[in-house]
Each structure stands twice: as structure tokens, then as C-alpha cells.
Write a protein that binds this DNA or RNA. Structure first.
Lengths: 204, 204
DNA sequence: TATTTTTCAGCACGGTCGTTCCTCTATTAT
DNA sequence: ATAATAGAGGAACGACCGTGCTGAAAAATA
């Protein structure tokens, strides 16, 4: 990896952690430069605009999500185990790498009404993510685990909603039971999505 | 109402709408002064610090929520009708008065990891709100509508989660079906919270 | 090793930020 | 009606913002 790419990675990493805490808009070039130990102009040279920096941070977050949340989960068996794995890898990723919890959740609410290129960019990522959840549910349907009449779109809506709830409970409210609550709710969601005959044959 | 209180109201109203769109931290004294047509220093004099302004905006939002969401819902019959009314009044309030959707949702995610007085202040409001949802569920239990073994805390978690999902779908994703999805999910939550005998006696 | 390209620091710019102080006017209370 | 008070504007502050320019050091290429 060339020197340029390396420092850019360092910057993006620091920027993402910062943004997970205080938001992407609060991210300032000067503050970020201080954190990674370089000059404002030196750092700026890598991105040529703040907006471009923000978008690259978002891209970096999305790539990171794919790498640490989605890919590991896909190695699990198709259907329910894979869906449960997503919850687990997502929890782990958010808490291990970021001081402020999942940066994609933070970004989503920060840009939900702020017009511009960053928002458009982010929206695409979110749609992709939701599509993945929907597909994961569809696979469970195909495998005969979920009811064949299940509305996978509705499943994705509830699945994401619960993650948002978890984020709020664990971050803002600092609720120690947040993870437990989340897992219970996900279990409930999965249980009521199950096909009748699968429910009968499945243990517990 | 004295002159001072009146202008303060005007300011808070404008500030809240602005914050629902672009966030409470992006709210600047100068920009706000421009919006309400007065001088920076004149506006500043009402609050004496930006932090105090932010907190007063949050208080204003919470009061507004109580007035437009909670109070109207309480006039409905105890139990399920009241819970459904909260969803409806919340939808109406968010979409009618704010360009950027529910400001309390926005604030929650903006301050979830930003230490300070504003965050502490907001946390209290959120806890009060969640407590109200929990109580509303408890009433449904007492009325024999919800199962007596229902975990009202878990109910509140899911209830709020779905609202967050709705916010994200309708604001960021601009999904026209967001409201429908939300209502369906709330119906599902209520349905599975019902007491067995109430389920049998209730129509549909 | 010599040359070209990339990377980064230093400095300066116009703007906006929150905030203070001072003045004047409009409102309120006596 | 008059005195006390509260409300609002004007100018200025130091700090920080994003952004360009220039030149030197470092890295990549030959």
C-alpha cells in the first residue's frame, strides 16, 4: 500500500470514530488533523473538500460494515442462523470499533433531512443494507424456515427498527439490558415469522 | 404574556423547526436571528449561552410533545385505543409542525454520545417518555386487554423502536409506505401483546 | 543513482462562530 | 405621567472554520 493510501486510511479511521460520537458534520478538518498528528492543509490535500471527506468516511463505514458484519454472518448456515449472526456481528462491530456505536445509524439520523451529496450517497448505502436484510429473510423463506407468505419488506423494517432501538437504549440511555432487550425482540420477530410446520419440527 | 416571553416563544419555535431538519448543534445564533428577523445580540440576550438555548429548545420540544401527542391521546379510552392514539397523534405532530420530522427523535440520536448538560437534560425527557409508554401498556394489562404476564418494558422498547424505524423510512428513505409499514408493525405488536381471552372476545 | 511525482507543512485569506459591552428605545410598574 | 426596567441593535473580540498557494521533503520510478 502506498504512503498516500496508508495515511488516508488512518484519517478515515479516526474520522469515523469521531463521527460515531459527535457526528459527521461536527467533524472539522483542524480537529481531525490534530488527532492524526498532521497539518490541516496536509490532511485537506487528501480530499480537496470537506464534503468529499464526509462521503469517503461514509464509504469507509459501509465497506467496514460489509467486512465486519455482513461477510462473517454469511459464513453461517442459510436462513435463521445467518439472521441471528448479523445481529451478533453488528453488536460486536459497533461496540468494538467505535466509541459512539454504529456510525451508520448515527449518519442515517444526521443526514435524514440535510439535503446534499452526502445524504444521497448515504441513502444508497442504507437501501443496499435493507435489501440485504430483506434477502436474508427471503432465504429463510426459501429454506422453509419462515412462512412462505412472510412480507420480507416488513421483516426488514422491523429488523432495522429494533437495531435503532438498541442503539438508542445502549447509547443515550446507557441501559445495560439493551442488548438483552434487543435479542429478545429479535427472537420474537423471528419466532412469529416462522412457517407453521417448521415451528412444529424445530426444537423449542 | 410579556413581550419577552412572546419573542422567546417565536425564537424557540423557529429553532425547533430548524433543528428538526439540520440538527441542534448546527443551529447557530446568527442564522436563527436572521430567520426571526432580529439581531444576533438581541437574540442572544434571551438565553445568555448557546447551551442554554439548546436546552430550552429541548424543553420546548418536550412540552410540545406532551401537549400535541400525549394529552390528546389520553382523552381516548384506556388501553389499546389510547396506545393507537399515541401513534396517530405522534405522526400528525411530527409531520404537521416540523419540516424535519420528530425533533425528539433527531435530538436523541444527535446527543446520544455527546457529553454535556444538553445530553443529560434530554436523557431525562426520553426516560419520562418511555415511562409513559410503559404505563400505557400497563393500563392495557390492567384492563384485561393485554396479557397479564406482558413485559411492559419490552413493549415500550419495541414501541419506540418502531417509531424510530418509521422516522428513518419516511425521512431518509422517503418511503411513501413508511406510515403504513409502521401501523402494520404496531398492530402486530399489539396483537401479540393481547391476553388470550381478550383476543377471543375481541372482534377481528 | 537521477528524475519525476507524491505527500505534507507553513502561512494567509475571508467568513462565521459564540460572546461581551455599550447604547438607545420600548415596555412595564408606580 | 414619571421612573424603573426589560428588550433589542451595533460594533467588536478572539477563535476556529474550510480552502487555496508555495515550497521543501519524501517516495516512487527510471
Amino acid at each position: 500500500m502506498s504512503k498516500g493510501k496508508e495515511t488516508r486510511e488512518t484519517i478515515l479511521r479516526a474520522a469515523l470514530d469521531f463521527a460515531s460520537k459527535l457526528g459527521f458534520e461536527s467533524l472539522s478538518i483542524g480537529e481531525l488533523a490534530k488527532r492524526v498528528g498532521m497539518s490541516k492543509s496536509g490532511l485537506f490535500g487528501h480530499f480537496n473538500s470537506k464534503e468529499k471527506l464526509q462521503m469517503m468516511v461514509i464509504d469507509y463505514a459501509a465497506d467496514n460494515f460489509t467486512e465486519h458484519v455482513f461477510i462473517p454472518a454469511i459464513s453461517k448456515e442459510r436462513g435463521i442462523p445467518r439472521i441471528l449472526a448479523i445481529v451478533e456481528t453488528w453488536h460486536r462491530w459497533s461496540s468494538r470499533y467505535f466509541t459512539g456505536g454504529c456510525p451508520l445509524v448515527a449518519a442515517a439520523f444526521e443526514y435524514d433531512d440535510r439535503p446534499g451529496a452526502v445524504r444521497d450517497h448515504l441513502t444508497e448505502h442504507q437501501k443496499t443494507m435493507l435489501n440485504s436484510f430483506e434477502k436474508a429473510a427471503q432465504i429463510a423463506v426459501d429454506e422453509g424456515q419462515f412462512d412462505k407468505d412472510l412480507d420480507c419488506n416488513a421483516f426488514a423494517f422491523e429488523f432495522l427498527s429494533l437495531m435503532l432501538g438498541y442503539h438508542l437504549y445502549s447509547r443515550l440511555l446507557q441501559d445495560d439490558d439493551a442488548k438483552f432487550r434487543h435479542l429478545e425482540a429479535v427472537d420474537s420477530l423471528i419466532e412469529r415469522s416462522k412457517a407453521k410446520d417448521y415451528k412444529e419440527t424445530s426444537h423449542q
